[in-house]
C-alpha cells in the first residue's frame, strides 16, 4: 500500500470517528466556559444515542430517509432535558458539579437500558434501517489528492460537526453573548456587577452543552453502531471531555483535538491492515488520547488553563 493510499484509507475514517467527538467537545466548551464543569457529557451522549435510535426505529416508515436527521432533533431535546437536571443541581442547588455530573452519567446509563429492556424486552435495540449514508461530494471529490481525502464517501454529519465548531467559535469570540459567557466563567462577580445574569447565562450554557452532546450521541449511534445497548457510547463522552481540555477550552482547538483523537481511534480499529502501524501494539493507540490529555494538562504540550471560576457555584454577595 502506498503512503497516499494509506492516507486515503485513514483520513476519511478519522473524520468519520471525530464528528460526534467534535460536537460533544464543543458542548463541553460552552458549559465549562460559563464555569460549570460537565462530567455528565458521557451520560448526555448516552441519552442522545438512545433517543436517536429509538426515534429512528419508531418513525423510519413515516419520515423515510430524513429520519436520522429528525432523530437528531429528538435526541437534542432529550439530552437538553437531562442537562437541565445538571443545571438545577449545580447552579441553583449549589451541588458539587462533579458529583452531579457523575450522577447524570449513572442515571443516563441506567435509565436508557431500563427503557430498552421495557420496550424491546432484551438488552439492546434492533438495528436501524434508515442510517446516515456516505456519498461523494459532486465536483469537489474529483480534485486530485484533496478530493479522495476529504470529499469521497463522506458523511454529511462530518461537515455539520465542523460547521458547528466554526459557528461556536464565532458565537463565543465574536458576539456579545460569547463575551458574557466567558465573563461569567472567569469572574462571575464582576459579570454580575455589570448587569449580566450569571444564573441565566450558566443555565443557557449547560443546556447548549446538553443539546450538542445529545446530537453527538445520536450521530455516533446512527453512523457507527446502528443500534443501542449498554456498550454503545462506552467512554466517547469522556474522550470528548479530553478533547475539550486538549483543545484548551477553545472551540477550534477542541475540534482539532477531536479530529486527532478520531484519528487515533480509527488507527486502533483499521490500523491492523496498514503496514508499520500494525506493528504497534493496539493498546498504545487506545491509550494515546488519554495520555496526551494528561501531558497537555501537565504543561508538556503548552499550558492548558481552565476558566477561572470553574466548578464553583456563584453565590450572590459572597466574596
Amino acid at each position: 500500500m502506498s503512503f497516499l493510499e494509506v492516507l486515503y484509507f485513514i483520513v476519511p475514517s478519522a473524520i468519520f470517528y471525530a464528528a460526534p467527538l467534535i460536537l460533544v467537545a464543543i458542548g463541553g466548551v460552552f458549559s465549562e466556559r460559563s464555569g460549570v464543569v460537565n462530567i455528565g457529557l458521557e451520560g448526555l451522549m448516552v441519552i442522545g444515542a438512545f433517543v436517536g435510535i429509538l426515534f429512528n426505529l419508531l418513525y423510519a416508515d413515516t419520515f423515510g430517509s430524513a429520519t436520522p436527521w429528525i432523530a437528531l432533533i429528538a435526541a437534542m431535546f432529550a439530552a437538553l432535558l437531562l442537562s437541565l437536571l445538571h443545571a438545577v443541581a449545580s447552579i441553583t442547588f449549589r451541588a458539587d458539579q462533579v458529583v452531579s455530573g457523575v450522577a447524570i452519567n449513572l442515571l443516563a446509563a441506567a435509565l436508557s437500558i431500563y427503557l430498552v429492556k421495557r420496550i424491546f424486552d432484551k438488552g439492546q435495540t434492533d438495528f436501524i434501517t434508515e442510517r446516515f449514508s456516505r456519498y461523494n461530494v459532486p465536483f469537489l471529490s474529483d480534485i486530485p489528492i484533496i478530493g479522495p481525502l476529504f470529499f469521497k464517501s463522506v458523511y454529511n454529519t462530518s461537515f455539520f460537526a465542523i460547521g458547528v465548531a466554526v459557528l461556536a467559535w464565532f458565537v463565543i469570540y465574536k458576539t456579545p453573548f460569547g463575551l458574557r459567557l466567558r465573563a461569567v466563567g472567569e469572574h462571575p462577580m464582576a459579570a454580575d456587577t455589570m448587569g449580566i445574569n450569571v444564573t441565566r447565562m450558566r443555565y443557557i450554557a449547560v443546556m447548549i452543552s446538553g443539546g450538542l452532546a445529545g446530537i453527538g450521541g445520536a450521530i455516533y449511534a446512527q453512523t457507527i453502531t446502528n443500534d443501542f445497548g449498554h456498550a454503545t457510547i462506552n467512554g466517547q463522552g469522556f474522550m470528548a471531555l479530553a478533547a475539550m481540555i486538549f483543545g484548551k477550552w477553545h472551540p477550534l482547538g477542541a475540534m482539532g483535538a477531536a479530529l486527532f483523537f478520531g484519528f487515533a481511534q480509527s488507527l486502533s480499529i483499521v490500523g491492523s491492515s496498514i503496514p508499520i502501524i500494525s506493528e504497534i501494539p493496539n493498546v498504545f493507540l487506545l491509550i494515546l488520547p488519554y495520555v496526551l490529555t494528561i501531558l497537555a494538562l501537565a504543561g508538556f504540550i503548552g499550558r492548558a488553563h481552565a476558566p477561572l471560576a470553574i466548578g464553583k457555584p456563584y453565590i450572590k454577595g459572597q466574596r
Partner: peptide
C-alpha cells in the same frame, strides 16, 4: 430490569449532592 436500582442510586447521589 435490575437497572431500576441504579436509577435509584443515581437519584440518591443527586439529592445528597444537593444537600444545600
Amino acid at each position: 430490569p435490575i437497572e431500576i436500582v441504579e436509577i435509584v442510586i443515581a437519584v440518591i447521589i443527586f439529592f445528597v449532592a444537593s444537600g444545600y
